[in-house]
């Protein structure tokens, strides 16, 4: 029995009630769990099953579907190595999820990035501020309902129109 199978069996056994789904795609395993249980599951995975390395922490936005946000924890057991992805769906426009910085100190900046880019409220984070955008920025750029912010491109035919309204700097 490979370590991954052991992991899945142990998760099924211990967290059967919060385990929603196990997805296999291109040889990668994703475990979908209730977002409220993220801390407990990750703690179990880290301390009992040896997934000590948090390779990546990110999220994506499924707008307009619900539940809208999915938080992704890419975990790794360095002996093997065995990779496991834990996914937490989050419903609503301003969802909350518990911070995992206590378990994985490396999650500090990625969680700030989630707050900045998706507007997720990370509860229990030691220093929740915007990280990439200016602190007075409005909106959360990586949300799907946030526009890309495209500006019209200047070509020969519309050069003068745009030139007139382009805010050129003064001395």
């Amino acid at each position: 029995m490979s370590h991954l199978e052991t992991t899945l069996a142990a998760l099924q056994d211990k967290f059967g009630d919060v385990l929603e789904q196990v997805v296999e795609f291109r040889g990668e395993t994703t475990v979908v769990i209730h977002a409220a249980a993220n801390l407990a599951v990750l703690q179990f995975l880290k301390e009992t099953l040896g997934y000590t390395f948090l390779a990546d922490l990110t999220a994506y936005d499924d707008w307009p579907e619900e539940p809208r946000f999915k938080v992704i924890y890419q975990l790794r057991n360095l002996f093997g190595p065995v990779s496991l992805r834990v996914k937490c769906p989050l419903a609503g426009d301003a969802p909350q999820i518990a911070s995992v910085t206590g378990l994985y100190p490396a999650a500090n900046w990625p969680e700030r990035e989630l707050f900045d880019m998706f507007g997720l409220q990370i509860t229990g984070h030691p220093d929740l501020r915007r990280i990439l955008m200016p602190s007075d920025w409005q909106g959360h750029p990586l949300r799907k309902d946030y526009p890309l912010g495209y500006e019209e491109v200047q070509f020969t035919f519309n050069f003068d129109d745009i030139d007139k309204k382009k805010p050129y700097a003064k001395e």
């Binding site: 946030y146 890309l148 912010g149 495209y150 500006e151 805010p167 050129y168 700097a169 003064k170």
Partner: peptide, 18 residues
């Protein structure tokens, strides 16, 4: 602005300095 026509990038530095 080059290939980055998006929210984060100033579309030409001539908007900021001559």
């Amino acid at each position: 602005g080059g290939i980055f026509n998006n929210y984060a990038i100033v579309q030409g530095v001539d908007e900021v300095v001559p």
